[in-house]
């Protein structure tokens, strides 16, 4: 049966056992990249001709923003799979993606405000880019709230999945807002074809983005594993796994 691999992926036990070995690797490699690239970006990448040193906050602002948007797709696709295949694991991924995404979005907004003050002359402006990212934060907070609002987990998962799916429309809006409307935020610097960043500034940025993706993967898997243990606490294998740890 062609769908067998897919259904096995949905087994919390199989997922928990498979990912155990990955966890320390994901965490150490991502931290290694983030720490070493921070030194590279803050200490060795050249100063920008116009912005001086303040441009360096982009090494935090850009990765958090990109991964915050990617995390939303992870949450919404997991919610969609949860609705279609009634897969327990998928609903767990959706639930745990929300707080991680919310933290990343808050960080993106905060670093953007800190960057905006010296360059634009203001912490905040209600332009299309910044406002749509604020809506992204509210969508994440909405999913977190919906998870808490229902005593029945199945209802909570269904409601969160619908909100996540409706909110997907916001992601292309965030991405294209700087091209569609007049905004204070500058257009994208990294493009598929050409980039408007000097390569000695671009490489640490790309490395930082990879580091943040890996760290996000670790955080997502780690939170999913905790969620599996909580929801499957009554099963035999979880009891055994916990006994083995103790």
């Amino acid at each position: 049966m062609a769908w067998q691999w897919f259904h096995r992926l949905g087994s919390p036990k199989w997922f928990y056992e498979k990912t155990t070995a990955w966890m320390p690797w994901l965490l150490s490699i991502s931290l290694l990249i983030i720490i070493s690239v921070s030194i590279w970006a803050l200490g060795f990448a050249p100063m920008d001709a116009k912005q001086g040193n303040s441009y360096r906050i982009m090494y935090l602002h850009v990765p958090t923003s990109i991964v915050a948007m990617a995390a939303y797709y992870v949450m919404a696709i997991a919610g969609g799979i949860g609705i279609i295949w009634k897969m327990k694991l998928s609903n767990m991924v959706m639930k745990v993606a929300a707080p991680i995404g919310a933290v990343l979005t808050a960080l993106a907004l905060f670093t953007g405000a800190v960057w905006g003050k010296p360059t634009w002359g203001t912490y905040w402006v209600w332009d299309a880019r910044i406002t749509s990212v604020l809506i992204l934060l509210f969508l994440y907070l909405g999913v977190i709230a919906l998870q808490e609002a229902f005593s029945d987990q199945e209802m909570a998962d269904k409601a969160s999945a619908i909100l996540s799916l409706v909110g997907t429309v916001n992601i292309p809006i965030i991405y294209k807002s700087v091209d569609w409307w007049f905004t204070l935020h500058q257009p994208a610097s990294i493009k598929m074809t050409s980039s408007s960043i000097a390569s000695e500034m671009l490489y640490p940025l790309l490395a930082m983005i990879i580091g943040f993706y890996l760290f996000f993967t670790w955080a997502l898997l780690s939170a999913t594993r905790s969620e599996i243990l909580q929801r499957e606490i009554k099963t035999k294998w979880v009891k055994q796994a916990l006994l083995q740890k103790a």
Binding site: A49, K50, L184, S189, I197, E200
Partner: peptide, 18 residues
């Protein structure tokens, strides 16, 4: 009442710009 700078998406090292 307020003037904000809108910078572009280009990043260039000082030496290259000079």
């Amino acid at each position: 009442e307020q003037v904000l700078a809108k910078h572009d998406e280009n990043y260039t090292p000082v030496e290259v710009a000079e």
